[in-house]
């Protein structure tokens, strides 16, 4: 038997477990195509809403030694115009996961149905963006609200439904159980950690929105903890995200219980080669340890 990095997330087959995280290079079809060419196993689109949205004025990004703080404010072309981008993105031959944001279940349903029509392999609900008023995390910390969204969207589509959750709550596990109970197919954890940067010289917050979401290696330890706890709380697959850049980072997430790992900030910090480099390291690890597939290491860190 040959060593393979293939992985399966509730019916969506990936050639490898690395995935582009939402929010990075996912706004246009051509950039998603480049991510496919760069070797990612799947790509998640920028979160798309009902209408075109400009997002916040700059500064929208702070660069730190070990990550970024961003407050883009969910800019995007809206679901209508995104069809054209999807048709380009699908030429890459990898699963394209449609990320969506909305404030109420009915709007999530409308968006999910369109995204399915466009050819998305799965839907990822953005229940976790920490910097857009009325959306994301403001919806995603209430288990009942989340259950209602998941139930209604799930009833309207045939493709798998993933829910991307926020670590900015003490109710992460309750929210995840609500997703599972309402029929959600997978959990994506975590979105960015709500954060802030202040300029001493300017005596004010740097970001236009004042607060934003911290990503990159700075939050890997938080993401790992969340995935580890989620693995023990729910039975549906978990996709890890938060600061993973190297094959070692990916291994840590897999061992914590993730079936696949999304990479976002790593694309900015290490370039588009980040996917292939991580996969090369994973393959070497499997071979060196005489393992045939990734499933042999998923969750192994849960020692008695």
């Amino acid at each position: 038997m040959t060593t393979s990095l293939e992985t399966d997330i509730c019916g969506t087959r990936l050639r490898n477990p690395t995935m582009l995280a939402s929010g990075v290079m996912g706004e246009t079809g051509d950039s998603l195509l480049r991510v496919a060419e760069a070797g990612a196993g799947a790509a998640v689109t920028k979160s798309i809403g009902l209408e075109p949205r400009r997002g916040y004025p700059n500064p929208t990004l702070v660069e730190l030694e070990d990550g970024y703080i961003n407050a883009m404010g969910l800019p995007g072309p809206g679901i209508e115009a995104f069809g054209e981008e999807m048709s380009v993105a699908l030429k890459g031959g990898i699963p394209i996961i449609g990320s969506l944001f909305a404030a109420i279940p009915e709007d999530f349903v409308t968006l999910a149905v369109r995204m399915q029509e466009y050819g998305a392999s799965a839907i990822e609900l953005n229940l976790s963006c920490p910097h857009a008023k009325g959306y994301g995390m403001e919806v995603g910390v209430d288990p009942e609200a989340v259950a209602s969204i998941v139930r209604q969207v799930k009833a309207a589509i045939d493709i798998p439904l993933w829910a991307k959750l926020t670590p900015n709550t003490h109710r992460l596990l309750d929210v995840a159980k609500a997703v599972e109970g309402a029929g959600g197919d997978a959990i994506v954890a975590v979105n960015t950690v709500k954060a802030m940067a202040i300029s001493v010289e300017a005596r004010r917050p740097v970001l236009f929105n004042r607060t934003g979401g911290l990503s990159g290696p700075a939050i890997k330890a938080v993401g790992l903890r969340c995935v580890y706890e989620l693995y023990e709380a729910v039975d549906i697959p978990i996709i890890g995200v938060g600061g993973a850049e190297t094959s070692r980072d990916v291994l840590e997430y897999l061992m914590a219980g993730a079936r696949a790992v999304q990479i976002g900030s790593g694309v900015g910090r290490r370039g588009l080669g980040v996917f292939q480099a991580a996969c090369g390291g994973l393959l070497r690890y499997l071979e060196e340890h005489g393992l045939n597939s990734l499933s042999d290491i998923v969750g192994v860190a849960h020692v008695q």
């Binding site: 990075v24 290079m25 079809g29 950039s31 480049r34 920028k46 929208t60």
Partner: peptide, 20 residues
């Protein structure tokens, strides 16, 4: 250009990021 750091994709021309 928004982020300037190769992340947000606002400056792409045919998938190439002007910033990165």
């Amino acid at each position: 250009m928004k982020c300037g750091a190769g992340l947000c994709g606002s400056c792409v021309i045919d998938g190439l990021r002007v910033c990165a």
